[in-house]
Design a protein around this nucleic acid. Structure first.
Lengths: 237, 237
DNA sequence: TGTACATCAGTGAACGCGCGTTCACTGATGTAC
DNA sequence: TGTACATCAGTGAACGCGCGTTCACTGATGTAC
């Protein structure tokens, strides 16, 4: 995210700092009232500046929102990458679990930011192309974990698969081409499902669908993710 | 939803009709601008009535929102129950698939209503108890499909399971007690995961996370759900 | 069957609020010679 | 090193808008005798 290239002048440094501060305050407001309630005026008020001054930093409310979305994707991606990198490379199951747990922990601490990126889209807001790369960090990480396992010849194929329609095979092959060249289309599909399960269980927890049903969220999450690991064939089932 | 008990007088009939109309217009607004953009004044304008008149029907904006949420849960629940009931009782896999497809089809037609119930919660809005029963229709239906299969002795246990913590077993046992007495805690957990996958895949599709990755949404959904059916043990894998 | 009264639906004005965005402006900071 | 000029950050007022909710009111519809 923060790219320090040329040594910045005093003006540029102050500008970068205030940009950060604006995003910080905006994140706090997000945590209180959600994406729809994010207001440039409220942010300006909090920073004791004229509301028009914010326009020197973000040309519109939507641009501020985009910056928050990109930051959120990058934050959860970086957190996951960090925890995953600490696990022994050959321990594929451990790497998947570390990634999954890191995502959940980040989400529990930053529920509104999680909702911003994985919840219902803000109506009328169109995500620009800048969000694609940051949004890909988690899925790419998951793919690489499973791909490493397959490349080492340690990936078990747990259950026979139902036949896959050609059109779908094409999409999944394209998806795996760069990031996971050692996986079959079926295996890529399984990773996609694992990703859906990861985000899905967290969404259910945060959005209240497990309320009064599951009481030990972390235990439930771990249990379900362990099953995903088994179904992926990352360890002998 | 619509409970016709005593024969209604003319006044009561008109009242019920206008209540329906208000909700209908509100649903249209929802489809355009999302839950956060739902406005009592805009609804009143559309119906050519004073904004204050709406208060004769819904005491506040939040109450209108609650009514929409309850209606949405009931609509998707009824659609799923209808399609599921058309499948031969002994065909557990078919019943699950019919339920899943009905939910997806409803969601594709009513994306904003889907987002209302399964997306990020409206900030500051607290769901009242009236939403619990309608929200349970889909999960109860899924449980009953798998339970029928188990009761008939046709449920396969596909893969050995990882051990389940006691606290989690307690939650899942309680969950299954009423609706699925023939299922083990592990099997209930698998149904829960299947439910998460069902809603998760639809959310990914509707919220844009599969954009430019999967092109044939229906084929992808069917493929993934067929795999869920296999993992549930509803048919020989 | 007719009348008196209570109930209810709907009106229109008002309160008090917040929002995004624009614009002409004032000063302060940087830059080129 | 000093000066003239350009760049930029920040101001404050304004535009035009929409919102939820309340309140005293007018009529019309139902109800009890």
């Amino acid at each position: 995210m923060t790219i320090i290239s040329a040594p910045l002048g005093a003006r540029a440094r102050v500008r970068a700092e205030l940009t950060r501060e604006i995003k910080g305050v905006a994140r706090e407001q997000l945590a209180e009232s959600g994406a729809a309630g994010l207001s440039l005026r409220a942010v300006a008020r909090e920073l004791n500046m004229a509301s028009s001054a914010v326009y020197r930093y973000f040309p519109s409310r939507d641009d501020l929102l985009t910056a928050l979305i990109v930051d959120a994707y990058d934050a959860v991606g970086a957190a996951a990458e960090l925890d995953e990198s600490a696990v022994r490379r050959s321990d594929a199951a451990g790497r998947w679990m570390a990634t999954a747990r890191a995502v959940r922990e980040w989400a529990v601490i930053h529920p509104q930011e999680f909702a911003l990126i994985y919840g219902s889209p803000v109506p009328g807001y169109q995500a620009p192309l800048d969000t694609i790369d940051p949004a890909s960090r988690i899925p790419l990480l998951l793919l690489s974990v499973v791909n490493d396992c397959a490349a080492a010849g340690r990936l078990h194929d747990p259950t026979p698969e139902s036949p896959m329609p050609k059109i779908l095979r094409a999409d999944l092959t394209t998806l795996g081409e760069q990031a996971a060249p050692d996986l079959s289309a079926h295996q890529v599909a399984r990773v996609a499902m694992g990703y859906v399960e990861l985000i899905g269980v967290i969404s259910f927890e945060l959005f209240g669908h497990l309320h009064n049903v599951i009481h030990e969220y972390a235990a439930h999450f771990d249990f379900q993710m362990r099953r995903v690991v088994g179904e992926l064939g990352l360890r002998r089932p």
